[in-house]
């Protein structure tokens, strides 16, 4: 009962902070709201007893990717003066396109969504079970994705190295 209440409140807060990401005017505030959203999502994972996924979500998204976002935005130093005037026809088209996308996704997921209580006590999200699954059933996709990551890293280093900078 208490868990259900917590999950409903948490869900509301997640959606609220996610809305604030797109509603807030300032880009840095948007990023900070996104970080908060990730924390709430981790809260949902903990409610589902998936502690490993919850903490990895925080480490990777809130701790690494969002820090880089903030980094770039702070260096860009966007001011309200520099902001371009909102182009009304473009925003109108964007709304239509986004709405159409939402409709397609909803239609696709229509049968998949069941509005029952999602709090299930399962141990899938614990480290041992997840590790066993990753290294037995899903070992091929796991290895392929790691190769993908390494090639992306090598590519990034190569791109950064290509132009030699001469600093006197």
């Amino acid at each position: 009962m208490i868990l259900e209440l917590i999950s409903i409140i948490l869900g509301g807060m997640t959606i609220g902070s996610a809305l604030m990401v797109i509603l807030s005017k300032h880009p840095i505030r948007s990023v900070l709201y996104l970080v908060i959203t990730f924390f709430f999502i981790s809260g949902h994972f903990i409610l589902m007893n998936a502690q490993f996924i919850a903490i990895v979500n925080i480490i990777v998204y809130a701790g690494a990717i969002m820090v880089l976002f903030l980094f770039v935005l702070m260096l860009l130093n966007l001011n309200k003066v520099d902001e371009k005037k909102t182009n009304h026809p473009i925003s109108f088209t964007a709304v239509i396109a986004g709405g159409a996308l939402l409709l397609v996704i909803l239609a696709a997921l229509k049968d998949g969504i069941t509005f029952t209580n999602t709090i299930v006590k399962s141990d899938v999200g614990l480290v041992e079970n997840l590790g066993t699954l990753l290294f037995s059933k899903y070992v091929v996709p796991f290895e392929i994705s790691s190769i993908l990551f390494i090639s992306a890293m090598v590519g990034a280093v190569l791109l950064a190295k290509r132009e030699k900078q001469h600093i006197d």
Binding site: I55, I58, I59, A62, G63, V67
Partner: peptide, 12 residues
């Protein structure tokens, strides 16, 4: 992992 998580958000 909890320690890593806290360390990684410590920069905020």
């Amino acid at each position: 992992l909890f320690i890593f998580g806290v360390v990684s958000i410590g920069v905020y």
